Computed example of a mutant assay.
Amino acid sequence: METVGGLLREWRHSRRLSQLDLALTAGISPRYVSLVETGRSRPSADMVLRLADQLDVPLRHRNRLLVAAGFAPRYRERPLDGPDMAAVRDAVAGVLRAHEPYPALVVDRRWNLVLANAPVEHLLTHVDPDLLAPPVNLVRLGLDPRGLASLIVNLAEVRTFFRTRLARQVARTGDAVVQALYDEFFASQESDGPEPRAASDEVAIPMIFRLPEGELRLFSTITTFGTPQDITLDEISIESYYPADADSAALLRSIADARPAPGL
């Protein structure tokens, strides 16, 4: 049976913090941290959440900590397509539409595609239909030869990007599914040589696609919800892609202009 002290200790170790480090950031004594971790002191619900906040524990796992301490879960998990999330869903969909003609999409904690705008859907026309069976996974879309990998000119750099983000995510969340995704594409490459470096004149590492319409260079930004109180919102992010040069911007506009109008 898991205990709140044991779980907190695991999270502290994963963050590479000593009991003193955690105590200082949480404003409590190292002795109290030790008492909690060894089960000799039962923390209040507020204390559990204070320690979880300092350890950057995801909301899903904060519920687990609360239950282990004998308290009810604090955070709900409502589906994005549910009635309670209509306002959020409409806001996110509006962000995706407003980003057109540039690609933008929403992924969940396991890199599954939740929403996408029309430019993303155009890119997916080049993907093997087998990869588009739900749940559609963005990592597989990007790295599987049947997906976008065959169109990506700088695939080695893009692989490094995914590898770094997945490794950080596993370290932060301990998610077994994300670990399996990492292993699927990268476990056999742990002894690889130095990772590719970005060209010195690049502001950010672009993804370079060779499409039938021409070469498309994109860089991405990531948007998350500030101070979410719902697990679903805590675990989704908006990936927005921007043209890295004027030619790419013009290409995206021309693709949008050639797209049939809705309803036609």
Rank of each mutant, 00 (worst) to 15 (best):
R140M: 05
R217P: 09
V36R: 05
L8F: 07
R109V: 03
P30A: 08
T38K: 01
R109W: 08
T38I: 00
R163Y: 02
V158K: 08
V203W: 14
E184V: 06
L166T: 02
T227V: 07
V106I: 01
E195P: 02
R12K: 08
D144Y: 05
Q179D: 06
S34W: 06
D247Y: 10
P212V: 11
L24D: 08
V178E: 00
L151R: 15
L233S: 07
S237E: 10
I28N: 11
D192L: 12
L132V: 14
R31Y: 01
G82A: 15
P103H: 09
P260Y: 15
L24Q: 15
F225P: 01
P260S: 11
R40D: 00
M1L: 11
A198P: 06
F225T: 09
V177Y: 07
L105D: 03
D108Y: 07
H122N: 10
N112S: 07
A133F: 13
A246K: 14
L124R: 04
Q19M: 14
L216K: 03
V57E: 06
L80K: 10
S254M: 07
Y102I: 12
L181G: 00
R165Q: 09
A72F: 06
Y102V: 13
Y32W: 15
S237I: 00
L155C: 10
V33C: 00
Q19D: 00
P58W: 10
P134E: 12
H61L: 07
R210D: 15
D108N: 14
Y102A: 14
I152C: 05
V120A: 01
N63A: 06
L166P: 01
I205P: 08
L66M: 09
E235L: 01
H13Y: 01
R217M: 14
P262Q: 00
I236A: 02
